[in-house]
Design a protein around this nucleic acid. Structure first.
Lengths: 122, 122
DNA sequence: CTTGCCTTTGACATCGATGTGAGCGTTTAG
DNA sequence: CTAAACGCTCACATCGATGTCAAAGGCAAG
């Protein structure tokens, strides 16, 4: 499939797909005329990239982790594993931070609700 | 206290504190010579702002929510409550997304680990 | 062949929080 | 009084993912 179809299937813009490739997150074969060709596997790969990007990982970080799927090399795998574990830690503390923020928000909501109820008494 | 001390206590740069004020997240009184003056309450307030910013909220969003603490007004409170609930929803789905990303990452780690173990057999 | 849609590369724009530096006033310690 | 350290405002720079536009080539249907 060409870039337009991959874009449609994944929801990533053509621009983003080219950017992913430029950053080394995505590989494509080229037709004789230079157009990018993808197969079905790429759909899943893009979904993974989107998920990680949405999780706040930089493309640089993803580039260290994901290529080990395509280029299974012993040293690269070790390096990727290190990056992944590191990123897992970062992700977990981000999650903890968000949960804490949500709790703080809940307290604010509660204060606010109480305030409104008290006002309603007037 | 002046801006330097608030910065030291919160870890937010002076630049950021001025920016928060400019965005309406933080209020300060001014000394006769125009310098910003804060009291202890501001430390907590800044901590809350930092927490929400780190949770990916825009300063605009925070500006809709937080001022209801300083300016308790009925209409404003209602509007803030709406914003807060909306933001809580967004936050929750972000958290879900991050957790899903972490699970995907865990699977990648596992694949990678297995690969390394198999290689070690050679 | 022509028309219309798709693709390519390259460049420039955007957004939001923050860094940085200039030029100038304020406060405080010696 | 002076110097150091702090504060003020204004303006420009940064980063990363993406949008957008331009000039050009590719491909399928009439």
């Amino acid at each position: 499939m060409r870039i337009g179809e991959l874009s449609a299937r994944t929801g990533a813009s053509r621009r983003s797909l080219r950017y992913y490739e430029q950053q080394g997150l995505l590989v494509s074969t080229r037709s004789p005329s230079g157009q990018r060709c993808y197969d079905d596997d790429h759909v899943q790969r893009v979904a993974l990239i989107q998920m990680f990007l949405a999780a706040g990982m930089s493309s640089r970080t993803i580039a260290e982790m994901v290529p080990c799927m395509t280029e299974p090399n012993m040293d690269r795998a070790r390096q990727a594993l290190t990056a992944m574990n590191q990123e897992r830690t970062r992700l977990s503390s981000t999650i903890d931070g968000l949960i804490a923020a949500r709790e703080a928000l809940d307290r604010l909501i509660d204060v606010n609700r109480t305030f409104l109820v008290n006002m309603a008494d007037d």
